[in-house]
Design a protein around this nucleic acid. Sequence first.
DNA 1: TGCTGTCCTGTAACTAGTTGCATGAAACTA
DNA 2: TAGTTTCATGCAACTAGTTACAGGACAGCA
Lengths: 316, 316
Amino acid sequence: MKRVTIGDVAAHAGVSTATVSRVLNGGLVAESTAARVWQSAESLGYSPNALTRSIFAGRSSTIGVIIRDLNSPFYLDLIRGVDEVAAAGDSPVMLANTYRRTDREVAQVRAMDQQRVRGLIITADETADDQARRMAQNGTPCVVVARTPPGLHSVSLDDVAAGQLMAAHLADCGRTRVGVVRGGTRPTQVKRVEGLRQGLVERGLRQPEEVVVENEVDVDAAVGSLLHRNDTVVCTTGRLTVAVHTALTARGLKMPDDAGFLTMDDFPWASALGISVVAQPSYEMGRRAAQLVIEEPAAPARIVFQPALIARGSCG
Amino acid sequence: MKRVTIGDVAAHAGVSTATVSRVLNGGLVAESTAARVWQSAESLGYSPNALTRSIFAGRSSTIGVIIRDLNSPFYLDLIRGVDEVAAAGDSPVMLANTYRRTDREVAQVRAMDQQRVRGLIITADETADDQARRMAQNGTPCVVVARTPPGLHSVSLDDVAAGQLMAAHLADCGRTRVGVVRGGTRPTQVKRVEGLRQGLVERGLRQPEEVVVENEVDVDAAVGSLLHRNDTVVCTTGRLTVAVHTALTARGLKMPDDAGFLTMDDFPWASALGISVVAQPSYEMGRRAAQLVIEEPAAPARIVFQPALIARGSCG
DNA sequence: TGCTGTCCTGTAACTAGTTGCATGAAACTA
DNA sequence: TAGTTTCATGCAACTAGTTACAGGACAGCA
């Protein structure tokens, strides 16, 4: 049960641990010695301890990712992007889910710090920013996704542009009576509605009627109230797409004839259901975030991505 | 930029590193000393190095998870289950995606071994089993999901029962001409079709016509060929659900009248689309797998879960 | 033969912690 | 007052590696 250590390999090959270490890391060693060491390592089934290596290096090679919501397609695509870049650079990925609970966000950032991750990608509320800035000061690159807090790297969407894209599409489809379901009070959500409002007003259309909804259970009532004075429902977060769609179909409304529907974030079934969306390049955002971790730019980098409209007929 | 170490805290508090360590881990220390040490740690912003702790403990507290396919709802639910149990026990989760590539599976198992993970949850082909068994021999509990290789813990579905559930439901709905899209050649897939066949034959119905499909691009042709002699399409993997559904709707077929459709694994949109499924308790399976890692049973445990039918009308 | 340089390898100190053992000072008993 | 016990703390060895430095062996050259 006792693990094979570098010392065991050294003894077996009749050399010092220093020599084994040099063989493993490509130092100056005679070819015959190196061959003997490899042979010993192989026959003993030696597996070098990455933790020990990391403590010497001052940090591990792992990239930490803190995710608010593992159910959301946006975050899943983001993870895939991070994972791809990390795998290419032989960095393991450490994942932590916070279930949208602020206390867990702070705790997870602290835990990642203690794990001495090489860098950290965070999707969380402002509460965890101070902790992240402290990490950044200690030399751990931290990238915040979907917000742009000062002093930290960030990867985010041009949310105002997303709202404007929505407005443009609605105008193109002749949708004038627009109700919007806003998912909570985070800046992302506010900016999207702001963009929508601007876009509609610029085109001489009525302002959207807005309802703020925190979670799924309140969606049905919200959609019901919007339908009194509107024939089109816009949703500013992918998280509530299922609930809003269900609220519409449960009322027997067919899209686009009975009601128009436009939402955020593309997802695998959108095409089968004919739902138009404004998509974030979530996979690319994940890739970029991981690249920032690896590149460690000196000054805080703010990468802003542009949204794209994918029209599938749910607005006409 | 230099990290604050336990030595710095000790010097600041005027004690030895041993005392600081004891304060942090709850050893025998005078209250006044402890208070002084906490104070110093706080004011210096000390964050203990979890890696060093782990090397002393012989292994880290991290649970490793190797996933074949981060796009699949089954694996995502599994991860959520693992994550919940891990978080409750303060274990970080290290995630690795293999993109269904065998060489990466073996490499990832090896990498997890080097990270000295506390335990490993694996969704991979047999190729990686030897590596996993070696880890298990070194005292790292390894849990294989969806297969039951000898000498390793496993968490799997009763795949034959899943097929039989499908057959029972099809018989109930009066579906007699059944074509099945089998997703590849893994034992899971073979057993599901086997159960389906048995179930249909037991009820005096015709055997299903079977097409084996490796990936999405071949699905449309496969469904097309099945529809010549069948009015119902069964899919034995959640991975191909979107593709099969698209192949049906692209032909203008409405479910259940023009064609019956039954597939594996529940997913968020199934209810909105009225698709009947045989569901795996994937979240529970993830929880159980993580529990096995934590409990470390001496003998290999084989946990088998039962599938459940969720009828939503796509078969009539 | 002596001197120098190159190549290889070992010693020992280092990373950031933990822990067994020894020590010392009070506190309590005799 | 002496002896014993208890409690708090420090010393030093330990985890599994890496690496600066020193030194030995050997070859090339004068």
